[in-house]
C-alpha cells in the first residue's frame, strides 16, 4: 500500500533553500522597477534583504507569522509617502516573475500570490 503525503506549500516550493534562491532575484527586480524603486532609496541593503527573506518566507506559506498590526506598523510610513494598490500590484507581479524564472509551477505561484494578496488591506493601512 502506498501512502500519499500532502506537503505544505512551503515544502513543495523547497523551504529555506527556495527563499535563498528567490530573494536576490526578487529584490533586484524591486530595485530596478521604476514604479516602486523610490520607496527603497537610501535604505540599508542588508536590513532589506533580511526583511525580504521574511516576506518571501511568509508568502511561501513558511513559518513566519506577521500579525495584521505588524504589517500596518511596518508600512505606515510608506503609505504616508503614497504607497497604494498600484505599488502593491507591482510587488505581486515581480514576485510571480521571480518564481517563473525559478521554474516554479503556475499553480504554486498562484498560491503564493494569494497569500501575498491576503495582506493587502493591512499593508495599505485600510
Amino acid at each position: 500500500m502506498q501512502r500519499y503525503f500532502m506537503n505544505t506549500l512551503y515544502e513543495q516550493l523547497g523551504g529555506t533553500a527556495a527563499v535563498e534562491a528567490a530573494v536576490d532575484i526578487f529584490y533586484r527586480k524591486v530595485l530596478s522597477d521604476h514604479r516602486i524603486s523610490h520607496f527603497f532609496e537610501g535604505v540599508d541593503m542588508d536590513h532589506q534583504i533580511a526583511k525580504q527573506k521574511a516576506f518571501l518566507t511568509m508568502a511561501f506559506g513558511g513559518p513566519v507569522h506577521y500579525t495584521g498590526q505588524d504589517m500596518r506598523r511596518g508600512h505606515a510610513h510608506l503609505v504616508q509617502r503614497g504607497l497604494n494598490d498600484s505599488h502593491f500590484d507591482a510587488v505581486v507581479e515581480l514576485l510571480g516573475q521571480s518564481l517563473s524564472e525559478l521554474n516554479v509551477a503556475p499553480g504554486l505561484i498562484a498560491q503564493v500570490a494569494a497569500i501575498a494578496e491576503s495582506t493587502r488591506a493591512d499593508v495599505l493601512n485600510r
Partner: peptide
Amino acid sequence: HSCRAGVCQS
C-alpha cells in the same frame, strides 16, 4: 528578536 523563524536575523 522578531520573526522567530530564522529569517529576519534580529
